[in-house]
Design a protein around this nucleic acid. Structure first.
Lengths: 220, 220
DNA sequence: TTTTGTGAACTAGTTCACAGCT
DNA sequence: AGCTGTGAACTAGTTCACAAAA
């Protein structure tokens, strides 16, 4: 059997956990690469960034054989592979719906651009906002223009930063514009059709989890 | 054996997943309560909010017997229990370190106040920001004042919204001020001592996970 | 020798299915 | 009858430990 025969096909469901870890591995490798480290073993990587060596190897092995036994992994090579696996070797254009405090902050968040994401458009319904730009220069369109702007700018990811009451409607609009990946900052659960990937980044849930651990830890 | 005998003690480790789900259940119950629904069964709750009935029952059963067989759960009563379990029946004061775009947006995010969190202080190092306030009125202090302000305002949760290069230093300062729960928005992994709960809300990882699913789904 | 890649073992998390209570 | 609470069964995820490769 050739090594590639057991690589995952496009129809396999790879877990969210693995996807997140690949992103973390990429960041570690980028840091190493920028300081000129040429090779690293899974155990050195694990030790340096508080990860688990076996898990790194297993995660990578889903996608191919990138290492050399007895040596480890080539940092720039593995970094390139990970960028490809994560789809970061193509242009990724992002739209943010909701030009409130959070939407505007996300639009100008420098971390996104650094990693190769282009925030190309903001959307809102308020007449006072439509036609303006974020401080960083991202134009604010009317939500009515969403489909047109998404098509014209080849936008592949939509971010929802509107109040909960509007979120499902916005999600529907985003989906019907052809976008198949949504990052949702609004509280509450949204429904999207199969084939659309929804990722929740619910800030209130995060804070309440912390509150939960404080309440548990302090009571004893 | 009394029912309470199997309740979890403070030293038990309850998973992050359960904590997040409790927060979601609370939001569902708050929505039901505000529309005057008096009782709900686990299966009705599951159906309405796309959850799993057995999981709801099992999650709740860790903390007590809140339901009535043949009837279901009292909405206001279960809501009150959940608020207690999540520690939301006490005052929770929050500090945000980093008064950039993201920090300022989080400080004025209405969702936090709605759920009972008080964002009482922002911190930064820039002379031009210290002494100012967010649009919503949260005062910006010098990071040097952190320990003093944390103690005086009984702050129990710290939010990190600074660039990656400063994040570990900020985390250390937060920990040494006595805070035991941190929500980290900066990329990269931070180390905190045992007994301090760190929750990462890494925006780049979220976007890259979505990119990964797009790359997988579109290649076939 | 060193370190990968990976089956096997283990651990955590979820769902089933039903006894037992109302 | 209806629904909870929960052991048992199942599924997913992690870690171990070692054969195979360089």
């Amino acid at each position: 059997m050739s090594p590639s025969a057991k690589r995952r096909s496009a129809t396999d469901q790879v877990s969210d956990l693995i996807a997140s870890r690949l992103s973390i591995y990429l960041r570690c490798l980028s840091a190493l690469d920028s300081t000129g480290v040429p090779k690293i073993s899974s155990s050195a990587l694990a030790h340096q960034f508080h990860l688990n060596a076996a898990q790194i190897r297993k995660d990578l092995a889903y996608f191919g054989e990138f290492g050399v036994r007895g040596v480890g992994y080539s940092v720039p090579e593995l970094r390139r592979h990970l960028r490809g696996i994560l789809g970061l070797d193509r242009q990724i254009n992002v739209a943010i719906v909701g030009a409130g405090n959070l939407g505007l902050a996300l639009a100008d968040y420098p971390g996104f651009r650094q990693e190769g994401f282009n925030i190309v458009a903001l959307f809102d319904t308020l007449a006072g906002k439509v036609g303006e730009r974020s401080r960083g220069g991202v134009p604010i369109h009317d939500v009515k223009e969403l489909r047109r702007v998404v098509t014209r700018n080849k936008i592949s990811i939509g971010v929802i930063a509107v109040p909960a009451s509007a979120a499902q409607l916005v999600a529907n609009t985003i989906v019907s514009s052809g976008i198949r990946a949504i990052l949702n900052f609004s509280p509450g659960s949204l429904s999207v059709p199969a084939g659309v990937k929804l990722k929740n980044a619910d800030l209130t849930v995060s804070l309440e989890s912390l509150s939960f651990f404080l309440a548990r830890g302090n009571e004893g």
